[in-house]
């Protein structure tokens, strides 16, 4: 089952048999089959199960909540209770081909350290996050004088797990500071509308993407060794 044809430009994500959330389907489409991976903040294991059962990956998970871990274990997945800030350090270098982080980066205490840890464990990571640069978020803040409240950002400030909100531009700044290589990048809006984030036009994506998904590489990883999903 292909979740995403290798299209560029703009396209709409079809529904998938696994009922994966669109951002997770997008992440899944960027993973090469049969690889070894760690899904950090794997929640109830929906993405991980898809990758293990449909893409033949050797997948492991890390999840902070007991309910999430139990759901994963009941699906037959191998998941360790832990949090990204502290427990990525438990894995040896190069344990995986990929480390995935879906909508968790903004919730960790130290996003910078977490990204570096992820790229210690694997030479490639796929990271998805909510884009606070979306026009609706900007408008919401400017017009109301309050923290953004939009379809994509609907949790009040005192309840959101996202303690490090960022925009697509902010995120790219961090990758430059850390010297990371960026691969494929997508913006996601209106639930399932995907747009390729094109170099030089990031400002446009920053305005129109509600969520973003980025493939990141270790600084020293040569282009030829970068994996591509089939």
């Amino acid at each position: 089952m292909s979740l995403l044809s290798g299209a560029r430009g703009r396209f709409v994500l079809g529904p998938n048999a696994y009922g994966l959330r669109p951002d997770l389907a997008l992440v899944a489409s960027m993973v090469e089959p049969g690889t070894r991976l760690l899904d950090v903040g794997c929640g109830d294991g929906a993405l991980l199960e898809y990758l293990v059962k449909e893409k033949g990956c050797d997948g492991r998970g890390m999840e902070i909540s007991q309910a999430g871990v139990n759901a994963c274990i009941a699906r037959g997945l191998s998941v360790v209770q832990g949090d990204a800030d502290r427990h990525l350090a438990d894995y040896p270098d190069d344990s995986f081909d990929y480390v995935l982080l879906s909508q968790t980066l903004q919730a960790v205490r130290s996003p910078r350290e977490v990204l570096l840890q992820m790229l210690r464990l694997a030479d490639t990571t796929v990271v998805s996050f909510l884009n606070y640069g979306h026009w609706a978020a900007r408008w919401s803040m400017v017009s109301r004088g309050r923290m953004p409240h939009t379809r994509a950002l609907s949790t009040p400030w005192f309840e959101t797990p996202n303690i490090h909100p960022c925009t697509v531009k902010d995120f790219l700044d961090l990758t430059r500071i850390l010297g990371l290589g960026t691969g494929r990048a997508y913006g996601l809006a209106k639930e399932r509308e995907v747009t390729t984030i094109v170099k030089g036009f990031e400002g446009q994506s920053n305005l129109f993407a509600e969520q973003a998904v980025f493939e990141l590489f270790r600084p020293e990883l040569p282009k030829g060794r970068r994996r591509r999903a089939s």
């Binding site: 997945l77 191998s78 360790v80 209770q81």
Partner: peptide, 8 residues
């Protein structure tokens, strides 16, 4: 293949 839970 390991799973781990710390029960409260």
């Amino acid at each position: 293949n390991v799973s781990f839970v710390e029960v409260e």
